[in-house]
Design a protein around this nucleic acid. Structure first.
Lengths: 192, 192, 192, 192
DNA sequence: GATGAATGAGTTTTCATTCAT
DNA sequence: CATGAATGAAAACTCATTCAT
């Protein structure tokens, strides 16, 4: 329906603008002109500016639930970690706006912070489970500190994601493909 | 003298408020009342609001030059990396405001981005130098990929720093002491 | 419609206030209260304060184009000059605001100066044309210096207009009717 | 003394700036830096910004008293009017600042208006006296309307002065020398 | 269901002026 | 007698939001 379309047009416009201009820079006026609707139409579709963001955060939270649900460990740690990292980065890529807003605005909107925290938690669990299984199967050294390694794995990926999205102009960071193929592999090999 | 004190009062107030309220939320009115001076006094001491930030960025840039200048490698990789990580996190702790503003506002103020990029560069150099020496001395396996390991080290520390300062309310991250004592140690031990 | 009315209300308020208070004295707050609208409404109708003035200047420039287009010389120099002077003074009376702002603020807003300069040019052309025809027709002495007489005519009218509008409280100047009936007549008769 | 010098430095700076920037554009800060004194020093020498202007106006008024006191008519109307016009324009040139401020700001500062009005009055008297004498002496036609001719003479000169000083960038007006040599001559010859 | 118009609270900044030294 | 520092009042302008149609 028309309504549905308008909702989406607004969300799309908001998302696009936020990446370039930040939350405050994304004024309702600009959203309206980018979405091709009247400024006041925004307020018929969303209680206020903040609830556009809220809706994006909700989608984010819903999507998080499904992460890794159908993930199956192969038992090959290098393969497994590379696949987990890929899922992580795909998720972030698909939720850039919330990821960035979380980085930039979570001090103002605690709900974003809350939603974002689920991501590393979830991935850490995924990795810890995998590690424990592998330790039992003898594929990871028994001496390995599983929790710390998992934390390091998350921090590594998180650090790379922040670099990629928070400083988009700086071409300092490792390109994502290389990062997955090389840095994550290097990390994984240490565990064997 | 009075001027110096006022300059400092304003910078202090600005820094404090920016952490809580962000750059835009830190209005000149609030700075004034936090610093206990008249709003217009701010403009006698700083050309405009933005140059308060500029001054902090300048200090940041100046301080970066001196990082690691007197650093001496012990040859013990665990010790060395723990010390480098400590220096990194001390630096970030002393420049929280710039570090955070860089994360949040670098898309608006490219100069911050530029200044911030120096930090990982500098540390990476420090670590790469160290690694190369150790490879030659036989303390790191010759098969190790020095550049990738250095990148991972930086990303790990960067990720932890962002976690610590960007989500201050979330007590999810590893406390800094533990991070240094355990996670960095774990990372380092893989290289031996 | 409402918009049109509001535009006009703002322009009217601006014009009225500028005469009394000058450009700077005419604050947006005062314009708003004089026009009976909210201060921010002004900025929905005009990009900024300066473009209210701009609009008046544009009207001025547009109106100038039409001056004297349908003017027909009678061949009677006294009659003709009195009619030209009347047109001049009517025009100035209808564009008091721009005329005055040109006098007062053209050093700040060069565009006003530019627009204003058209007025004497246009009138001088009108007069010179008329004079030349009359010299040929023998109605003005052949010895008359046409250009100088035209300049004097313009300066006379300009001087009177400035007197009238720049020192509105001073009742020193010749009332406009008398000026036209007597001073311009006197001037004209010298040419016969 | 030092005080005297400072007074003068301030007045000079004020005068110079007002010509370029107008009264409001001439901020106390700029006056101070142009005069090479501290901003607050201005207020030790003048009650407030406005009394700098007042002092210039007083000088203007004092100088006006002396205009034409020693003027002697030659009986040659062309010569006489050219000399009167020269005196007029010299006076205006020497009091540009007050002349311009009168044009621009007399709506705000009625005292300037009052002072300025003396100038045309004085000159008109001078000219009327001269004309009457010449009519009696038969050098001007008896039919001449003395008052109107005098008014026209004043308006002509005033108009030219305004053109010269109010639109300094517009090189549209008659250069002063030519104006005196030709336009005033033309005007004068009509009276013979 | 969408729009055009209007608004009030707030923002950064400027400026003449005062005060303590 | 002059200065450096501080101030209060006001200026132009922005923005999310409401209201009548």
């Amino acid at each position: 329906m028309a309504t549905q379309q308008t909702d989406e047009k607004i969300i799309k416009a908001f998302s696009k603008l936020v990446l370039k201009l930040g939350y405050q820079g994304t004024t309702t006026k600009r959203i309206a002109s980018e979405a091709g609707v009247n400024e006041s139409t925004i307020f018929r579709h969303f209680k206020d500016k903040h609830s556009i963001l809220e809706q994006l955060v909700n989608t984010y939270s819903r999507d998080i639930e499904q992460i890794g649900q159908s993930f199956e460990f192969t038992g090959d740690i290098v393969q497994d970690l590379m696949r987990v990292a890929t899922i992580y980065h795909d998720f972030v890529a698909n939720h850039q706006v919330v990821f960035l807003l979380g980085l930039r605005e979570s001090y103002r909107f605690p709900e974003i912070g809350q939603a974002l925290r689920q991501l590393p938690k979830r991935f850490k669990n995924l990795v810890v489970t995998n590690f424990n299984e592998m330790v039992e199967a003898g594929e990871i050294r028994a001496t390995a500190n599983v929790t710390e390694e998992a934390t390091n794995f998350i921090l590594l990926n998180f650090g790379n994601a922040v670099f990629t999205y928070a400083y988009p102009t700086a071409r300092l960071q490792v390109p994502m493909k290389a990062f997955l193929a090389e840095n994550i592999r290097t990390f994984a090999e240490h565990l064997q």
